[in-house]
Structures are given as C-alpha cells and as structure tokens.
Write a protein that binds this DNA or RNA. Sequence first.
RNA 1: GGCCCUGUAGUUUAAUGGAUAAAAUAAAAAUUUCCUAAAUUUUAGUUACAGGUUCGAUUCCUGUCGGGGCUACCA
Length: 594
Amino acid sequence: MQELSLNQQVRLAIHQVLAENFSWQGSSDSLVINQTKPEFEGDFTLVLFGLAKTLGSSPDQIGQSVGASLLKKQPALFSAFQVVKGFLNLSIPDKKWIEDFTRTSQNKTSVDTPRPRQRVLVEYSSPNTNKPLHLGHLRNIFLGWSISAILKKMGQSVVKSCVVNDRGIHICKSMIAWQRFGKGATPTTTGMKGDHFVGHYYVLFNDAYKKEVDALVAEGMTKERAEQEAPILKATQEMLLRWEQGDAATRELWKIMNDWVYEGFDQTYQRVGADFDKIYYESETYLLGKTFVEEGLTSGVFFRKPDGSVWIDLTDDGLDEKLVLRKDGTSVYITQDLGLAQQKYDEFAYDQSIYVIADEQNYHMKVLKLILRKLGKPYAEGILHLSYGMVELPTGRMKSREGTVVDADDITQEMVEVARKKTEELGKVQDFTHQELKELYETLALGALKFYLLRVDPKKKMVFNPEESIDFQGFTGPFIQYTHARIRSILRKAGEPLAIPINASLLPKEKELLVLLAQYPAHLHQSAQEQNPSVLANYTYTLAKSFNGFYAEHSVMQAESEEKRYLRTKICQEIAATISEAMALLGIRVPERM
RNA sequence: GGCCCUGUAGUUUAAUGGAUAAAAUAAAAAUUUCCUAAAUUUUAGUUACAGGUUCGAUUCCUGUCGGGGCUACCA
C-alpha cells in the first residue's frame, strides 16, 4: 500500500476528528487546508468558517476542539496548534518532515497515477507553409510539447501530432511571386534558409498586390472592388484552381517550394527541441470531411440551401448558422477539421484529443466540437481546445504582412548571443571546449526563451517587448539553471551522504526547502489537470529562489556538524533532481556548470 | 450590432472565496579572505470605476469606462 503524503495524512486526521467530535458528514476533499502564512506559527491551516456554519458552532470552539483532539490522538504528527481569528494553525514536528523527506526521496517514482491510463493525442504547431515560424508559434510549440511531457509523466499514453497547412491560397501567393520575381533563385543559390526564402516571396506578393490595388484605386475603382480585382490575386486564384485539378506543373512547383519550407522548419524544430509522432498534411486530408456532409444531410443535422450550399443551424446553441460546404461543392475549413478529427480517432482511438491553438479560434473549436456532438460522434467529448493567448508587441498584434513579427530563428539566435556575451563576461567556464561552450549557449538561450513563454498562464495573452528582450536575471530560466549548476558543484565535492539523521532539528531555511519539496507532486498534478505548465514553472522558480536563500545563509561542506552536512547534502540532491525533472517537463535542459 | 475574453506596483507577471495582495524588473543602497555574486539582503511602490452576494471578494454577480478577439462561400 502506498503511504500517504504529509498533506494527505493531515487532511485525513482532521476529517476523522471532525466526524468523531461533531458527527460531521462532509467529505475530506471539502476541507479548506492551506499552507500557514509565514507570519503565523504552524505548517498547515484549517479554515474554520465554513465548518462553523454547517456545525452551528463558533469557529473558535471548533478550532480548539479539533486542535486538542489532533494533538491527543496523533502526537507524532502534530506538535502544537493555535486558533487565530477563525483559522486553526497546526504545527508538524521537524522529525515528521524529515521522515517524509527521506521516504519520498527513496521512493521517487511515487508520483502516483491513480487514474487509468488514457490515450491522449496532442496537436500543436500547425503552421502555414508560406512563411517562417514566429514567436507566437514558439509559444504554441513549447506549450504543446510541455503539456505532452507532463501528461506522459502522469502515466498517460501521448501521441504528438502536427498538421501542416501545405495547401491553399497562401502558398499559391508565394508561388506566384516566385514565378514572377524569382528568376530561378533557390535557397541554395541565395544561401537562405528555405522557410525564410519562401516567406520572402510571400512578402513580395503582398507588395505587388498592394501596388496593383493602389493603381486600380487611382483609376477610380473602389478599394473593395480593387482588392478583389487585382490581377495578381486573380492569377493566384487561378493557380489554386489548377492545383485542385491536379495540374502537373503547378503541383511540381508546389512540392518544390513546400520542401524548401520543410527543410527550414525541420531545422527550427530540431533546434528548439520540438518533435512529432505523427504529421498530417492538409493536402492529404482536406477532402475527408465531405463524407460528413452526406451523413449530416441524411440525419437532418445539416440542411441544403437553394443555391446548393450546405449549412448547420447552431442558433439554438447561441451561435450562428455555419457553412459546411460551398455551393461549388468544395469544402471549407471546418469541414476539413471534421474529417481530420475522425481520421485521428480511427488511427489512435483517443480518449482525449487536445488542440493547442490560439484563442482567436475559440469560436471555431466550439463549433467543431458541437457539430461532432450533433452528429453523434462518441469522440466529440474528448476534444479539448487548449486555448492560449497570443503573443503581442507593445504596439499590438504581430502582423506578418506588415513585417512586425518576431521571427523564431532570429529571437533564438539573439538569445544565444546574449548567453555567449554573459558567459564570456563572467569567465567561469574558460576551460570549456568549443563544443561545450556551444552547447551551453544553446541550453541557456533556449532556457531563457522557453521559460519566458511558459511561465505565464497559457490562457492569458502576453506582451513581448523587443527593446527589453528576454532577461537572464530574476524570474527566468537561466536563474534556475544557475541554481542547478551551483548545487551540482556542491555535490561533485560532497559525495554521497552516509546517513540521514532522522532526529536532527531543522533551521528555518532547511525546513522551507523540505516543505517545498513535499509540494512538488501536488504542483505536478495541478499542472497536468489544468494543462498549465506555468504552474510548474512558478513552482520551480520558488524552489530555486528558496535554495539560493539557504545557500547564502548556510554552508553544506562546512556545516556545523556531520549530521547537518549529511542532511544538507541530501537536500541538495533532492533539489537538484527536482529542478532537473521539472525543467525537463518544460523542455528545458539544466547545465552541470555555467 | 451580436457573442466571447480581458483590466493587479512605472513595466512584465503571481495569488482552489480566506489572514497585512506576492515576485521579477526598472530606481536607491549593502554583501565576495567562506561550497559559482547569472546570487543574496534592505528601501519605496499595486487590485480601472460604482454597486451587490458573503463572516470574508483580486477571485462570484450587475452596471459604467478602457483593451483585445470572433462574427468569411479565407485557413
């Protein structure tokens, strides 16, 4: 049988006493038990107000009664209590903390998974193939990767997938521009990374398009009309049509340009540590949804308008009528997604299908799930939109057409430069080989970048200021990496502790660390449950911060006694291991030295 | 217009309805004969506004004002 954590032991004990003393019927989960605020004596705090109401007794009376009984019944678990203004503060003896610490550190794998193993599909990073990745994509990638790692850690079976939007008007724009302005240039002849190369032609398209629109407007056409009539746009639309008809030349150019982009994407993915178990290409899946249209018409979920287009009426659900098939018979975005959802289910029989997509698509995802539900698809309920806020600049939203995007490769390289500069200034690793230095810079650069994007609640939009760049000090990845390197440095010298002294007393800084370490599983669970890596990021930072306070005040190697040296060495081991594991779940490596 | 999200120190972010709202950064200062000063310590500064529910509201509800997104026979 698995032993209970301290937290659970306390909760259970309180529950038992309440049942005995007051015949209380509530569940132990409904008890509000917090960590005691530092300005009060104690470790755990039971909030009494809610109980006072249901028990018809004063908070003070309940607190006194429960406190006294706990002390009497479980003197090994509780050493003291105090009732302050409706709060029952309970103290746990040092011995108990150390016991719990040694037990959990010996039994590291006990991040228990009570829930049955589930099959989870996580889709993240679904780029268009007409331009390179930017900072927003990075947030998406890091989130998706991290949540996959966290769910795996919780014992679930995770498949990471990616949908490549390789087809459509956007890539045709780059193709047209390349035909007209490219003069046969390639990434090789220009020395450009493939995705940037293709993105360059996307920009050229927009420049040319804008010029044509302006010219038409100057001739007296309205802007709306001009935007539809611009010859280069017409040409693009014709190209898309030829693509759909399977025109060989069009398909060939399309393939060449997409391959250039993939080469570029792959480099970026590899550098930032993104990987996928399954890649879907829109060009191979975009027709899948059409079978749904027949099915929906038959079952009466969809209806056909006189012009031949097919719709679904969602007004009863507070939404609009939504088109699922154009009058010309071609399918739209939502229809493709219906088909893809089915395909994913056929292939992986998932319990849960997570889509990591920006919150601008909240409506779309709501509709997707709703339609599948109306069609009676059993897997509809497993669909989950992990909606994240977009990364904005101080001036507002990033716009690729206006050239205000923060490019993913650029920002990564910038971080590497910062890492190099700082490392050289500090001069702590002058014995590193060229290769070791290179690796260190990558580790630090990506640590800074990933932590920056993951420390914020995914649901919230975030603002990135290119002027200020990303810090290496304070609430950052490198801060935690540095803390890890410091600990490892101690451990290289200290060796293995021979015994952990159960009866040692704890100094405040030591105890603080034990308390924090005991909270790790709870934070891990929370971040999995909320699908929110920032919980883990915040926790890890607090742990590192707390260690640095300890480090400044106490010496491990020169401890007051051998007993203390062993205890502190053990604490160092556990902190390092926890930091390392938590950071790994965020996709961040931690160095031995820096 | 309709629907959804959002408003916390100068700035970027925390806080299952719980005690005196917490960090970082920017600012001012202090700490290296001692395990890595990418660190630590100290000082000053915040819940848009008005109501309501509650023993208790940053959190829940209503309204006002600000910001954003969606509302395509684009993806």
